[in-house]
Amino acid sequence: MAPPRNRRPGFSRRAQYGRFIGYVGAAGGALFGAVLLLLSTFNPPAFAAVRSVFSEITTPVASGFHWVRRSLSGIPDGIGSYFAVHGENARLKKQLAKDALTVSRAQTLEQENRRLRELVKLRDVTTDAIVAARLVNSSSSSTRRYATLNAGAWQGVKRGQPVRDPSGLIGQVIETSPNSARVLLLVDPESIVPVRRVRDGLPAIVSGRGDGLLDIRSASVSTMGFRVGDVFVTSGTGGVFSPNIVVGRVIRTQGDIAVAQPAANPDGLDFALVQQTFLPEPTPTPAPSPSPTAQPRATP
């Protein structure tokens, strides 16, 4: 036979003990409350002492519950503060990156303006300047080294004219079109420039290596050693390059050959100055016209 669903507590010892303990607790609490009431009425000092004891006991517990409640209530604010700080941090990082880009652009513009001022100053003191033009590109990934100027025949640029900037020689124009010109750079293996050493006037020949450096060989019969730090300038020999344009500085020696660093690095330049050749091209002599020969008169 199945047991009834609603069983009275009397059938369970656990329920009976629980109810008994409840009754005892209620009676004890009521008795304790009555004692405290009587004590507060008839003996207030004793009640104050009891109250102090209970306050000392309950204060740490209340403080712990208050800390827990405050910590739990601060969790939403902490989460909100974290996301707010994270967003502010991201915004500040973005602003710093933007400011760094602005500073970099300003530095680039300042360097370009400085080079332009130097180029304008050079153009003002140079009597053979043709035009100041921008180097729009230069080949740096192969052994052949060329550059392109955004000025050509319409601006007076001609084949063979030197190209330089305030720091030194860059190269020579080899091709022209109406609004552009091709420049053979000084560091190209096909480039050959007569130079002289500044400290003693030693004549030499500079040729490109194709790797951004120059080879310098003595042009005199006597073999004179090169030294690191020797500076070479154009000599004017050949009539193409004006004298005293800085070409390069020796950085190491290899026997009777010196390896030099060019004074002007075309990969880092924006503008260049095209000059006339040192010696003007000779004017072609007109061919003499044949003298008319006397025709014999016809006899009647």
Rank of each mutant, 00 (worst) to 15 (best):
L72H: 10
G18F: 12
A84W: 03
G28L: 14
L39D: 09
V125F: 06
R249A: 00
V50A: 15
L119M: 05
P203S: 05
I245W: 08
E56D: 03
G201M: 12
R297C: 04
F232E: 03
I130Q: 05
P76E: 08
S289Q: 15
L202P: 08
V131Q: 05
S63W: 12
R217H: 11
S139W: 02
P189H: 08
L116G: 04
V274R: 03
M1A: 04
S291P: 10
K158L: 08
P282V: 13
G33W: 03
R297V: 09
T283M: 07
F226L: 00
G171C: 02
L109R: 06
F83I: 13
V195T: 01
P290K: 11
G225A: 14
G25F: 14
I57L: 14
T41W: 14
G80F: 13
R209K: 06
V61E: 05
R164Q: 14
A27N: 04
T283H: 07
V231K: 14
G87I: 01
D211P: 11
A258M: 03
D270G: 08
P300K: 14
R7M: 09
L116V: 07
D270K: 10
E56M: 01
P4M: 11
D200W: 01
M1R: 03
V35R: 05
S167Q: 12
A298V: 12
S222W: 01
K94L: 10
L38A: 14
V274I: 08
R13T: 15
R123T: 11
V231C: 11
F232R: 03
K94Q: 14
E110G: 02
P292I: 12
A133P: 06
P292K: 07
R7Y: 03
A204V: 01
N137S: 10
R91S: 15
V131N: 04
V195C: 00
E88S: 14
G78C: 09
I79M: 03
P243I: 02
G87C: 01
R91Y: 15
V103W: 04
T58F: 12
R227P: 03
L135N: 02
E88K: 13
N6K: 09
I75Y: 04
L38I: 15
F47D: 07
V125D: 08
V125C: 05
E281K: 12
S138H: 04
D211A: 07
G74S: 09
R209C: 04
V157L: 01
V233F: 01
A287S: 06
E281S: 11
G25Q: 13
I130E: 07
K121A: 02
S139F: 01
V195Y: 00
D215L: 11
G210F: 04
D188Q: 03
P166K: 00
L269E: 09
A153R: 12
I75W: 10
P288L: 08
A133W: 09
R199V: 14
P300Q: 12
R217Y: 14
T58V: 07
R209Y: 02
N89S: 10
L37P: 07
R197W: 00
L169E: 09
S138N: 09
A15L: 15
S55K: 10
G78H: 08
S207L: 03
R159Y: 06
E56C: 01
A147I: 05
A26Y: 12
D270I: 06
